[in-house]
Protein backbone atom coordinates (compact mmCIF):
# COMPACT_ATOMS: atom_id res chain seq x y z
CA UNK A 1 0.00 0.00 0.00
CA UNK A 2 2.82 2.37 0.96
CA UNK A 3 4.65 1.49 -2.22
CA UNK A 4 1.57 2.31 -4.22
CA UNK A 5 1.31 5.81 -2.73
CA UNK A 6 4.97 6.53 -3.23
CA UNK A 7 4.75 5.37 -6.82
CA UNK A 8 1.68 7.44 -7.55
CA UNK A 9 3.23 10.56 -6.07
CA UNK A 10 6.53 10.07 -7.85
CA UNK A 11 6.17 8.64 -11.26
CA UNK A 12 2.69 9.14 -12.66
CA UNK A 13 3.51 12.58 -13.98
CA UNK A 14 3.50 13.01 -17.73
CA UNK A 15 4.72 15.93 -19.78
CA UNK A 16 1.93 17.13 -22.06
CA UNK A 17 1.39 19.45 -25.00
CA UNK A 18 -1.89 20.31 -26.70
CA UNK A 19 -3.32 17.55 -28.90
CA UNK A 20 -2.52 19.59 -32.02
CA UNK A 21 1.13 20.22 -31.13
CA UNK A 22 3.83 18.84 -33.44
CA UNK A 23 6.03 18.01 -30.41
CA UNK A 24 5.99 14.31 -29.62
CA UNK A 25 9.20 13.57 -27.76
CA UNK A 26 11.84 15.47 -25.77
CA UNK A 27 14.75 14.56 -23.53
CA UNK A 28 14.44 15.16 -19.79
CA UNK A 29 17.26 17.65 -20.16
CA UNK A 30 15.37 19.61 -22.82
CA UNK A 31 12.26 19.70 -20.63
CA UNK A 32 14.31 20.81 -17.63
CA UNK A 33 15.92 23.63 -19.61
CA UNK A 34 12.56 24.86 -20.86
CA UNK A 35 11.04 24.89 -17.37
CA UNK A 36 14.11 26.48 -15.72
CA UNK A 37 14.26 29.34 -18.21
CA UNK A 38 17.49 28.10 -19.82
CA UNK A 39 15.92 27.44 -23.20
CA UNK A 40 13.21 29.31 -25.08
CA UNK A 41 12.88 26.85 -27.96
CA UNK A 42 11.81 23.32 -28.75
CA UNK A 43 14.39 21.33 -30.71
CA UNK A 44 12.44 22.14 -33.89
CA UNK A 45 13.07 25.85 -33.31
CA UNK A 46 9.54 26.87 -32.34
CA UNK A 47 8.98 28.92 -29.21
CA UNK A 48 8.40 26.94 -26.00
CA UNK A 49 6.21 28.56 -23.33
CA UNK A 50 5.99 26.35 -20.25
CA UNK A 51 3.10 26.26 -17.79
CA UNK A 52 3.76 25.28 -14.20
CA UNK A 53 1.40 23.87 -11.63
CA UNK A 54 0.94 25.94 -8.48
CA UNK A 55 3.49 25.77 -5.71
CA UNK A 56 2.65 23.03 -3.25
CA UNK A 57 0.90 20.82 -5.86
CA UNK A 58 2.20 17.27 -5.64
CA UNK A 59 2.40 17.17 -9.43
CA UNK A 60 4.83 20.08 -9.44
CA UNK A 61 7.24 18.63 -6.90
CA UNK A 62 7.16 15.23 -8.59
CA UNK A 63 7.72 16.80 -12.01
CA UNK A 64 10.88 18.67 -10.99
CA UNK A 65 12.16 15.64 -9.14
CA UNK A 66 11.64 13.62 -12.31
CA UNK A 67 13.27 15.97 -14.86
CA UNK A 68 15.96 17.66 -12.76
CA UNK A 69 16.29 15.82 -9.46
CA UNK A 70 15.89 19.16 -7.71
CA UNK A 71 13.89 19.86 -4.57
CA UNK A 72 11.20 22.60 -4.41
CA UNK A 73 13.64 24.78 -2.43
CA UNK A 74 16.35 24.35 -5.06
CA UNK A 75 13.91 25.30 -7.81
CA UNK A 76 12.88 28.34 -5.81
CA UNK A 77 16.50 29.37 -5.23
CA UNK A 78 17.14 28.95 -8.96
CA UNK A 79 14.33 31.36 -9.80
CA UNK A 80 15.41 33.80 -7.10
CA UNK A 81 18.75 34.02 -8.94
CA UNK A 82 17.10 34.77 -12.28
CA UNK A 83 14.34 37.06 -11.01
CA UNK A 84 16.52 39.29 -8.86
CA UNK A 85 19.10 39.73 -11.58
CA UNK A 86 16.43 40.63 -14.12
CA UNK A 87 17.36 37.56 -16.19
CA UNK A 88 14.05 35.77 -16.22
CA UNK A 89 10.55 35.20 -14.91
CA UNK A 90 9.20 31.85 -13.76
CA UNK A 91 6.54 30.14 -15.89
CA UNK A 92 2.89 31.02 -15.43
CA UNK A 93 1.02 28.73 -13.10
CA UNK A 94 -2.16 26.69 -13.24
CA UNK A 95 -3.95 25.52 -10.11
CA UNK A 96 -4.86 21.98 -11.20
CA UNK A 97 -4.55 19.28 -13.85
CA UNK A 98 -7.86 20.46 -15.36
CA UNK A 99 -6.65 24.06 -15.52
CA UNK A 100 -3.48 22.89 -17.26
CA UNK A 101 -5.50 21.10 -19.96
CA UNK A 102 -7.74 24.11 -20.47
CA UNK A 103 -4.83 26.57 -20.71
CA UNK A 104 -2.81 24.37 -23.08
CA UNK A 105 -5.57 24.68 -25.66
CA UNK A 106 -5.47 28.49 -25.39
CA UNK A 107 -2.19 28.76 -27.30
CA UNK A 108 -0.54 31.18 -24.86
CA UNK A 109 1.40 28.34 -23.27
CA UNK A 110 2.32 25.13 -25.01
CA UNK A 111 3.96 22.65 -22.67
CA UNK A 112 3.10 21.47 -19.17
CA UNK A 113 2.71 18.35 -17.04
CA UNK A 114 -0.20 16.57 -15.35
CA UNK A 115 -1.01 13.39 -13.52
CA UNK A 116 -1.33 10.52 -15.98
CA UNK A 117 -4.88 9.78 -14.78
CA UNK A 118 -5.96 13.26 -15.93
CA UNK A 119 -4.87 12.75 -19.54
CA UNK A 120 -7.68 13.04 -22.10
CA UNK A 121 -8.19 13.87 -25.79
CA UNK A 122 -7.32 17.56 -25.37
CA UNK A 123 -3.65 16.86 -24.64
CA UNK A 124 -0.85 14.70 -25.97
CA UNK A 125 1.74 12.94 -23.82
CA UNK A 126 5.33 13.85 -24.73
CA UNK A 127 7.58 10.81 -24.70
CA UNK A 128 10.67 11.45 -22.55
CA UNK A 129 13.82 10.18 -24.17
Amino acid sequence: MLCFFVASARSDIVVVVSAASPISSLSKNQVEKIFLGKSRRFPNGSRAVPLNQSEGNLERDAFYQMVSGKSPAQIKAHWAKLIFTGRGQPPKEAASNDDVKQLLTNNGVNISYIDRTAVDDSVKIVALK
Binding site: K76, A77, A80, K81, F84, T85
Partner: peptide, 8 residues
Protein backbone atom coordinates in the same frame (compact mmCIF):
# COMPACT_ATOMS: atom_id res chain seq x y z
CA UNK B 1 24.89 39.62 -8.80
CA UNK B 2 22.89 37.71 -6.18
CA UNK B 3 25.10 38.97 -3.34
CA UNK B 4 22.10 40.51 -1.55
CA UNK B 5 19.66 37.68 -2.21
CA UNK B 6 20.62 35.31 0.57
CA UNK B 7 17.93 32.82 -0.36
CA UNK B 8 19.61 32.24 -3.74
Amino acid sequence: DTRLVGYA
